[in-house]
Computed example of a mutant assay.
Amino acid sequence: MTRKLGNTRLVIATHNAGKLKEISALLAPFGIDCVSAGELGLPEPEETGTTFVENALLKAHAAARAANLPALADDSGLSVVALDGRPGVYTADWAERQWFEGAKGRDWFMAMGKVEGLLCEQGEDVDRSCWFSCVLAIAWPDGEEAVYEGRVNGAFSWPPRGKMGFGYDPVFVPQGRDVTFAQLDPEEKHKISHRADAFAKLVAEQFAG
Rank of each mutant, 00 (worst) to 15 (best):
S133W: 15
V135T: 14
M110G: 05
E96V: 08
G123R: 11
M112P: 01
D142P: 01
G143S: 06
G117Y: 05
Y90R: 15
A146P: 01
Q98P: 00
T91L: 13
G105F: 04
E116F: 05
W158C: 05
C120P: 01
D142A: 11
E101C: 02
V126N: 10
A92R: 15
W108G: 00
A95L: 07
R161C: 12
P159T: 10
C130F: 09
G117C: 02
G162F: 12
S157V: 04
K114H: 06
V152C: 12
Q122R: 15
A103E: 08
N153A: 03
E144R: 13
M112A: 11
L119R: 11
A92D: 15
W99H: 10
F109S: 02
S129Y: 12
R151G: 03
R97Q: 07
R128H: 13
G113R: 11
F132E: 07
R97F: 02
S157W: 04
K114L: 04
K114I: 01
G117K: 07
A92S: 15
L136I: 08
D93F: 14
E121F: 05
W94K: 06
P159W: 09
C134W: 15
D127T: 09
R151V: 06
E96A: 13
C120M: 15
E149N: 06
E124T: 09
M110V: 02
R161I: 05
E101T: 00
L118F: 12
S129D: 14
G150Q: 10
R161A: 13
G150I: 07
A111G: 01
K163L: 07
W99N: 04
C130R: 10
V152W: 06
W140D: 03
G150F: 12
L118V: 00
E116L: 02
W158D: 05
V115E: 03
K163I: 07
D125A: 14
P160D: 11
N153T: 04
Q98E: 08
G105R: 03
G143H: 11
D127K: 13
Y148Q: 04
W140R: 06
V89I: 15
G102L: 01
D107K: 00
E116W: 11
F109H: 09
D142G: 04
E144N: 11
V115D: 05
E144T: 10
Q122V: 03
V89Q: 15
P159E: 04
M112W: 10
E116C: 05
Q98N: 08
V89K: 15
V115K: 04
Q122D: 05
Q122F: 12
A92L: 10
A146M: 07
A137Q: 12
K104L: 00
G102Q: 06
I138D: 07
E145M: 11
Y148I: 01
W108F: 14
N153V: 00
Y148R: 03
A111K: 02
A139W: 07
R106A: 01
C120S: 13
F109R: 04
E145K: 14
E124D: 15
F100H: 12
W140C: 05
Y90N: 11
A137Y: 14
D142T: 09
P141A: 08
C120F: 09
W94Q: 03
A137E: 12
A137F: 15
Q98C: 02
K163T: 14
C130G: 10
Q98R: 11
M110W: 06
